[in-house]
Design a protein around this nucleic acid. Structure first.
Lengths: 159, 159
DNA sequence: ACGCGTTAGTTGTCGCGTCAACTTCGGGCC
DNA sequence: GGCCCGAAGTTGACGCGACAACTAACGCGT
């Protein structure tokens, strides 16, 4: 009566369904956002964060912190978005890049998208969940995020 | 007293936590798999599916069907895996590519990885869930997958 | 003031995933 | 037989995301 050494078939099935559901859901939301408002999910996240900031501008580091993204990911995303003129890089007199700012185009895009995207998230996600399921997912998500971030954050702490 | 036109802040918070949790969890599993067995999550999925097939070979279309992936995604994945010598392309006499086969290297890799990866999934995922939460997630996932696949499948049906 | 480590930000490279376009094989229809 | 259509498979382009290496400015201590 040894403990089974790997997952039960039904656990694999759950795991695969879950991964698949995530992917299909994200794809669906992304497609709708792209089709209706011409922006991607990643762009939406950046734009909505910038929009909440004073004057639509932030430091890149703040943005990364606020999104929970790595800074290199943010830099790449900003490069793409700058090419599409959704954001502007702010430089000081010496040319040093110092932060990022929403353009008029970016502001318009996010203002248009936010209601529709919220509705899509409601339709595709919240309306398929009971309030208890939603609460359970919320609790679980926070726990996962906290535990992973704790494990990553502990490394450079030892003097 | 109009219905709120967009999500409540707490719903946005839930949504963002959930997306973040998914991403961090997937990254963690991927890192472990890469570090311990030298393969990625996507490679693992392909290898384990091939391994279950007779003689470790399948048609590309079967593989795509069985994984629930689009065929172009499978083709790209197979190209990368062929370069790494985890799989072989099977051709008929006229050179037409007709299917795919596990190499010895690929078989070894998946046999080594399967126990460890299963354990990681258990540790990072199943052990953070109560059985009821797991059941709820399973039911929800299947529902999402079915509803999205149903909507996609309906298009080409009209004559 | 000088140097030097730290931090902010960027860049390159690579794998994953999608979409659209293309090639080629095979089967039916005349 | 010859033609055409649909299915199987591949390719290219592009955006997303991770990691590592790099550069430049800042600040601090002496």
């Amino acid at each position: 009566m040894t403990k089974p050494r790997t997952l039960e078939p039904e656990q694999w099935e759950l795991w695969n369904s879950w991964m698949q559901a995530q992917r299909l859901l994200a794809r669906e939301l992304d497609r709708d956002l792209q089709r209706d408002y011409g922006i991607s999910k990643a762009e939406f996240s950046v734009l909505v964060t910038l929009q909440r900031a004073a004057e639509g501008q932030m430091r890149v580091g703040e943005l990364a912190e606020s999104l929970g993204w790595e800074k290199s990911r943010v830099a790449h995303q900003l490069t793409r978005m700058e090419n599409r003129e959704l954001v502007d890089r702010i430089a000081n007199r010496s040319g040093r890049r110092i932060g990022i700012r929403l353009t008029a185009k970016g502001r318009t895009a996010v203002e248009n998208a936010i209601l529709g995207h919220g509705d899509n998230i409601r339709r595709y996600f919240f309306e398929t969940l009971t309030p208890e399921q939603a609460a359970a997912i919320h609790a679980w998500s926070r726990q996962v995020v906290d535990s992973i971030e704790a494990r990553c954050g502990e490394g450079p702490a030892a003097p």
